[in-house]
Design a protein around this nucleic acid. Structure first.
Lengths: 107, 107
DNA sequence: TGCAAATATGTGTGACTACGCATATACTAA
DNA sequence: TTAGTATATGCGTAGTCACACATATTTGCA
C-alpha cells in the first residue's frame, strides 16, 4: 500500500485532470488566458456554441478552476489561479520533448 | 485565435490528461513508481481485478505513458519517463495549496 | 413597462468508458 | 506433452459525458 507517491490525493487529482482532459475546455482556458473574458468573447474565439461554452464553464467553475463575475449585462470568467496555465504548459512541454512514442504504437 | 497559450498542442495534451484522469490508473502509476513492476504485484497492490489492471495498463501503454517488457513468465511494466511522477506531484501540490475551493461550491 | 441581449439551465441522446465474465495466449516446469 | 501460472483479449453492460435544442433568467435600454 505504501509506494513512492502515496502522498498524492488520487481522488482530487483525478477529478481535476478529468476536467482538464476535455479539448474544448482547454481551448476555453487558453481563450481566457490571464485576463477575465466575457462569455461572448470565448464563444467567438472558440467557435463553440453558446450552450456548449456555458456547459463547459459551469464544469470548470464547479471544479474551482475558473470563476465568473457579473459586470452589468456580461459575465467575465477568469482563471481562479493562473498558475494552472504554467502547469499545462509544463505538461505540454514534457509531451513534446521526452515523449517520442505516438499513441497507438506499442511493443 | 491567437491567445496566451497558443503553443499548446491541445489534442495531444487532452489525450494524455484523459488517460491520467482515471483514479485507478493513477493508483497503478503510483504502484509502479520508479521501478519496473510485474502485473501481479500491481494487482495485489491496488486490489483491482486482473482484467481491470490489464485493461488500464493497455490504455496507458497505447498512450505511451508506460511500457511493458517480458521477463520469463512475467511482464514488467514501468513508466516510460519517470518525470511523469514529478509532474503529477506538482499538480497535486498545486491542488493542495493554491486551491482552496472545494468542488461543487461556486458563487 | 416591455423588448432585446447575454448567459444559464432542463431534457434527451448518441458516443464513449470502466468493468466483469469467459476465454485465449504465452511461458515454465514436471 | 500436459498442467499450471501469468497476462491479454473479445463481448456485453451500466454509467458517464458532450452536445444540441428549447426555454428560463438576468440585465440594460427605449
Amino acid at each position: 500500500m505504501m509506494n513512492s507517491c502515496s502522498q498524492l490525493n488520487i481522488d482530487k487529482l483525478s477529478k481535476a485532470l478529468k476536467v482538464l482532459s476535455e479539448p474544448n475546455r482547454l481551448n476555453i482556458l487558453c481563450s481566457m488566458g490571464l485576463e477575465c473574458t466575457q462569455v461572448s468573447a470565448i464563444i467567438e474565439d472558440t467557435g463553440l456554441s453558446q450552450t456548449n461554452v456555458s456547459f463547459h464553464l459551469r464544469v470548470m467553475r464547479e471544479a474551482g478552476l475558473v470563476k465568473g463575475e457579473r459586470r452589468g449585462a456580461f459575465i467575465y470568467y477568469c482563471l481562479y489561479d493562473t498558475t494552472l496555465l504554467a502547469l499545462l504548459e509544463e505538461m505540454n512541454q514534457w509531451l513534446d520533448t521526452s515523449f517520442q512514442k505516438a499513441a497507438g504504437s506499442e511493443s
